[in-house]
Nucleic acid binder design. Structure first.
Lengths: 361, 361
DNA sequence: ATTTACAATTTGTACATACATCCAAAAATC
DNA sequence: GATTTTTGGATGTATGTACAAATTGTAAAT
């Protein structure tokens, strides 16, 4: 029961196409014919046709006529797009995380748009802006430099205001108000450190990323374990580095590093990547692992089994985490839930061969 | 310079908003005012306003007036999107290729949409369809099962008809008419085999992928070298496998494989992944590499240095190839060039430790 | 001070007419 | 038979008029 004539004609036209089984590029009725059929003026018919044209149901060709457009276009609406922004994706554990994300999104018929920030907030801003301008229906983001002040606060606020669902993974900005999926980084730091104490180590040092919430939390777990074991001086035995310069640490902090290796029986590394590099550094400086010094990593990356001394580390859920993040986003997209619950994976120790066990006294 | 009055008013209106620095939700001129300003009928003004409304420049409220919409929307037009479809992307050399693609596209301000086929033509079809429905401006595709008949021919024809630029990498379908970027696979097969002959090997076998043009070409290079060295029986010493069952070959073709390892002094592997698996198989069966048998791979993947016997292989340009593919697509997008030239990288031998050298007689 | 009624303004719908422009098929020409 | 011209019919543009429906401000009534 349409109130207006032109809207009635719009509906009538759609039904007509369906009823007559008109195929794409079939000719539709002319304006004149529609006038006589509905007993209205040509202007009214034109208004109705303009509507149908805007809705992509018909296309009109001057001098020729009105034609039916691709019906498929209207039936299967554009598949949804989701933006995935991570710091890296070709190295380390990222390919596996992204594979997990891709699998779930793909199964849900969602297209994944990928961008990397190389852990630069500027690139993060650019990626976010591009994605939004691109009309993504959701965002999966791994924060860049999550522990430092972030100039993209305003952008995230806009995302919130525009009600674009967003899920963080691995870390979240402390000031942000989006759900996140990560492993319990503090527990991970605590578990490896506890394990070292259990193996009889007493002089334990740590190397952590300073610009990254994960680094802070793992450091927190490390400290928690040290304090629980009555080691109050651990704070001094920590070396901090910025993730951008992770390869430089072995050049520019060489002295401090060597000193640390001599004075400690074990080193807790921020992650496996650092640990593997440390293993190489030890080899180059004729320090035997685990005989001279023990090394533990976190993340259970592929390299931890491939390096010359298989690395004791903490399992990161990798692919499962990716899948969970994607599912979380899909949940948020279907039912925007402001009472977002975070998903935290509990880490698990993987014992390999990079830690020496001391005799119990 | 507009031919039609209403189009002139559309342009005038946009300039007016810019000139007067009208903000979103500011009131625009009423229809009556525009009539007197331009000296046209109200209908003409209305047609112009309808255009501006369709372009999202203004919004009209019955009984209230016409208002300016979000200007940001119109200024920054949607960034371009490009679809990247590869067989895998989290393993082997794919992360590096995709990283190369991503870098170039990103620099060009193009968003990358990623999908993987797992070397399944069905998934390839689905990915292509989704991408097209999504309105990508270009496609980068690694063919799936490129050596077998492909049911997606029709799809590729449609892509051609719709003039969507497309570039293949690593391989191309023999019947297709798109440019591609790859390394010279035949030369790669030839180079490693030649090297084995140079090292004094005479009994050389090969293992190749049967469903993949790269496999065929590498096999071709292998055969070329064998024939050049007057080994006419090589054809019998080839084991074929389907890429999907690459891990099964070591179970189900175990007898044939062992026989081959005993009867040969060297094995040419389709790629490094297979070679690394073969190394493990040898270790498990107490066959020493390279003392008992030599193994060569192709692709120079990361694993070729990390496995216990560093692998002699052929360098694949990885990231550079990715970058070149992306640039090729951008070329095609800016200047559709039917006289598409393929880009072929010439491979280079990387000698490591998996090949034994026989004394020259 | 709040409510109510009304009027003015503004956009939306509908009809009528005239001419412009383009397409395609029919007709005329070569 | 092939090419050019004509012509009918289709959509596009432009103007005019009339009324409908929604918003907003004003003024009167409560």
């Amino acid at each position: 029961m349409e109130e207006y004539k032109y809207l009635a004609i719009v509906e009538w036209g759609k039904n007509y196409i369906a009823k007559e089984h008109l195929q794409p590029n079939d000719r539709f009725l002319s304006e004149k014919e529609l006038c006589t059929i509905h007993g209205v003026s040509r202007q009214t018919v034109r208004q109705a046709l303009k509507c149908l044209e805007n809705e992509n149901v018909i296309s009109r060709v001057r001098g020729s006529g009105t034609y039916v457009k691709n019906v498929a276009v209207q039936q299967s609406e554009q598949p949804k797009r989701v933006g995935v922004i991570s710091t890296y994706f070709s190295d380390y554990i990222f390919p596996q995380i992204v594979t997990g994300i891709e699998r779930v999104l793909n199964d849900a018929g969602i297209v994944m748009q990928l961008s990397t920030t190389h852990n630069q907030v500027y690139e993060e801003a650019q990626a976010l802006r591009t994605m939004i301008a691109n009309g993504v229906q959701g965002l999966i983001v791994e924060p860049s430099k999550s522990a430092l002040p972030n100039p993209n606060m305003q952008l995230y606020r806009e995302i919130k205001e525009q009600h674009i669902p967003l899920v963080f993974f691995n870390a979240k900005y402390p000031w942000s108000d989006f759900p996140y999926v990560a492993m319990d980084d503090e527990a991970a730091g605590e578990i490896v450190t506890n394990y070292l104490f259990d193996c009889g180590h007493q002089r334990i040092s740590g190397i952590f990323a300073l610009d990254d919430i994960q680094g802070h939390k793992r450091y927190g777990g490390f400290m928690k374990s040290c304090i629980a074991h009555n080691i109050r001086t651990a704070e001094k035995d920590v070396l901090w580095f910025a993730t951008a310069e992770k390869s430089y640490i072995f050049k520019y902090a060489r002295t401090k590093l060597l000193e640390m290796l001599v004075n400690s029986t074990a080193i807790v590394c921020y992650n496996d990547e650092l640990a593997v590099n440390l293993l190489r550094f030890c080899r180059e400086n004729d320090i035997k692992v685990p005989d001279d010094v023990s090394v533990v990593g976190i993340d259970d990356s592929k390299f931890s089994t491939l390096c010359d001394v298989p690395l004791t580390t903490v399992h990161h859920p990798h692919k499962v985490l990716g899948e969970r993040v994607a599912r979380k986003l899909i949940e948020q997209m279907s039912a925007p839930d402001d009472a977002h619950e975070d998903v935290i994976f509990h880490p698990e120790l993987i014992v390999r061969e990079s830690v020496r066990t001391f005799e119990k006294r």
